[in-house]
Design a protein around this nucleic acid. Structure first.
Lengths: 215, 215
DNA sequence: CTCTCTATCTAGGCATTGACAAGATAGAGT
DNA sequence: ACTCTATCTTGTCAATGCCTAGATAGAGAG
């Protein structure tokens, strides 16, 4: 399980290099996000030549997309775990939102990468290369999957009569918008450096979720 | 009032150059945000040498900060205008949130610049140069001023009994978090390219603001 | 009216970056 | 043993941010 050829350079890394590059990139996006990501620096960190990454990622953005995808997977697992630990829908939704915010606070560089404007813009203008397409479509799928968690909670809650009527998508969107917005205000505005940010988040998110409760 | 020396290069532009640089930068941040901003390109657009901006902005980030500040002023005015047009506090708050979202949709590059991670990180680590400090402190003040609009609405609404009790800051934060989060989901996730986004926003923000109403 | 003085702008250079092209290397398949 | 191909390296290019030194213009002083 441990092909420890870190000292020797056996020249053919195979697909392992791809994973190593992403792992190194995951480090370098902290704390600034995509702006702190340099393909050459990543290559240097892994110990390969500056052009090696190009074989797995046609673009700097493609590498960033892979990092973002890894981020969405990690965040998804955090949220899923938090949700599984609760029973009542309203508690599940609160826990999901707080897990969302907490993830952003703890890995702000990764979080910023996940929602980097560059990736969004590229997603709209279809890329050309084969590899690139793959990187970016999996990214979009992961986003949708993550939002699905919230929608499912809302739907279940509505079935139980815990949440008010209305399009489940809209209710879920309200929850994620609040979580997303609060997270960004925390990390992009230095908001609440001194106060306990998660406590603050619990308050604010709680207020928002009150709007989702059945009357 | 119109020293139209655009063809000739009288060499001494004085403080006018500063304004021209910001104006040009305001164009270049669209649509990508700070990532699309190049000091050299800005200088080229204005017609000065590549090092000229350095006299007004010690840094690329300082220029970005000036752009961001201009953005906050513009957004502030949009929101203020929308608020003035309503009477009831709940309507004011909804209008403010929607104006917020609309601004982000119409000027996404500028909006992205206003909340660029690089600026946030620099705000935390005190800059050195004199000019730089000024650029960044005015930025922080403008942010606070903008949030103040929301707090004021909430406070008035609470006095009238329209909004529920609680710390005005928390209620206002809930509103801005929702607006901010929704705006970012719109522009950073290509959300709702086809549907009418402002109508969607009205729905979602409406749900959130229900949580602020008096019971 | 000329001379100096200073803010303002230009010119050139440097290290770094992302992308591209051409070549070297290793290992699999025949 | 030989080829063939994916994998990686080396070298190059234009562009960028920032730095330093120098040119220029206009104001103020004699």
């Amino acid at each position: 399980m441990a092909p420890r050829d870190s000292q020797k350079k056996p020249y053919h890394w195979g697909e392992q290099l791809r994973g190593d590059l992403v792992a190194e990139a995951l480090r370098q996006v902290e704390p600034l996000g995509i702006a702190g990501l340099s393909t050459r620096e990543v290559a240097r960190g892994v110990g390969v030549s500056h052009a090696a990454p190009a074989h797995y990622f046609p673009d700097r953005l493609a590498l960033a997309a892979a990092v973002a995808a890894a981020g969405f997977e990690q965040m998804y697992e955090s949220i899923e775990a938090a949700v599984r630990a609760r029973r009542k829908p309203s508690e599940k939704l609160l826990a999901a939102c707080l897990a969302y915010v907490e993830f952003a606070l703890e890995r702000r560089g990764l979080y910023r990468t996940m929602y980097a404007p560059e990736l969004a813009e590229r997603l709209n203008t279809l890329p050309r290369s084969r590899k690139g397409v793959d990187d970016f479509t999996t990214l979009a799928q992961l986003k949708a999957k993550g939002f699905g968690v919230f929608v499912d909670i809302v739907r279940d809650g509505q079935a139980e009569g815990a949440f008010r009527a209305g399009k489940a998508d809209d209710l879920a969107r309200a929850a994620t918008a609040a979580a997303h917005g609060l997270a960004r205000q925390f990390i992009d505005e230095g908001l609440g450096v001194r106060i306990d940010r998660m406590a603050h988040a619990r308050q604010v998110i709680g207020i928002v979720l009150d709007g989702l409760e059945a009357r």
